[in-house]
Design a protein around this nucleic acid. Structure first.
Lengths: 229, 229
DNA sequence: CCTACCGATCGGTAGG
DNA sequence: CCTACCGATCGGTAGG
């Protein structure tokens, strides 16, 4: 009996695409051989090359497949991208969820950004800039209305938040994990994502800081010292 | 005359190390051949293998070389890591400078984190966690004294900021560059780093938001609220 | 530091 | 979807 390693309920091209995505994300495009991929699917290398004419074609298909998933969630993202802190929280969580749902998406994106910066740069310009511009417009509106920090640089802010989300999922539990010994990896992942959302909101909304300060108990409020108002 | 491509004033092992660093950062460890490296140095492959017994040994030397540069700046970092917003700004800028001074450091770190997460995880635990813990302690002190947001998760916050710095240098001008057409790459890089520092501080210090609000227009606010220690 | 060479593996093709 | 095979290149060695 031949040992088919991947889900046999899917058709062969789909299984190739899935295994290639997994292996490209884990070892990189150059670090993965066609034999490894075909082996994971349970077929021989020439059979793989029947479905995808070259390794390069397979790479492109993997990227296109990820992009099609991204295009599925963009409408949800745009619906959440109205001004207001709660809607922004929803937008953040939707975006984080896209990558946590399959961390290979984040790893693949970072790898490709390092290997082929021009190609990924163009891809970002086409597929995320239009959506980022909507968010930037909401930020500018919020600044005019006084509930978003006036020194936010909208384009740079949105870029850094995208960068933060992608990279924290991609290199999670490695770069940036400075947790004390007692904390489990899952617990730390939860805390990292919570903190990511807090940082994103706290550095954007004025109301967030104000609400928090007004909540402040437990801390000996320096009411006697810096009082006033 | 043989065409030595790298700086001939350095000795050969050093030139090998530099070229290997550059190529590993640009194409990854698996994506770089020993012939490419030796060619960039201006020698033949077997000569390279005289100085470094294997490709794996060369990889480790490249990493160790980067670590030794890191260890050089750590004292400066610790000196800057006292409480207070200005000192924190200096700490951020020192850390950013370490990576912008040679962006290959950031690219190499991200690549290794993707290729060998366990190895880089252990490395981070040894070389950045002790320093991160100092920062965390300052954050907790600041929270007790009321000038740092109480809902900051110190370990997660520090981890995310490290992540943000490294990844924004590594994949700069690619992921996260959603700039409008008219802006030059250099100008956008400056804005990204400025915004990174703003986000880091604004999401940490209460005084930052207060000071900014006092600058604001169209916002009713507590007039003078200067927190000094 | 070099030339010459090793077995293994790479992406890809022929032909069925 | 397979077996058989291609030239090129890989990391590494022998020997000087």
């Amino acid at each position: 009996m031949p040992s088919a390693k991947s889900n046999p309920s899917e058709d062969v091209p789909t299984r190739i695409l899935h295994e290639a995505t997994r292996l490209f994300a884990a070892r990189g495009f150059g670090g993965t051989s066609l034999s490894e991929i075909s082996g994971a699917v349970g077929i021989r290398k020439p059979s793989l090359l029947y479905h995808f004419p070259s390794k390069e074609a397979l790479r492109r298909s993997v990227l296109e497949n990820m992009l099609s998933h991204w295009n599925e969630v963009v409408p949800r993202l745009l619906r959440a991208a109205t001004s207001g802190e709660d809607q922004y929280d929803a937008l953040l969580r939707e975006t984080v969820s896209f990558f946590t749902a399959d961390p290979d998406r984040a790893r693949l994106l970072v790898r490709e950004a390092l290997d082929r910066p021009d190609e990924i740069g163009a891809l970002v310009q086409r597929h995320v800039r239009p959506w980022a511009e909507v968010v930037c417009e909401h930020i500018r509106k919020g600044q005019a209305r006084g509930h978003i920090h006036r020194d936010v640089d909208p384009e740079a802010y949105v870029g850094q938040m995208i960068n933060l989300i992608v990279s924290s999922v991609a290199t999670y539990a490695c770069i940036g994990d400075v947790a004390p010994r007692g904390v489990s990896a899952d617990e730390m992942r939860r805390r990292h994502i919570l903190e990511l959302c807090r940082v994103a909101k706290s550095s954007l909304f004025i109301s967030s800081a104000a609400a928090e300060r007004s909540r402040g108990v437990g801390e000996p409020k320096p009411a006697s010292r810096t009082t006033t108002t």
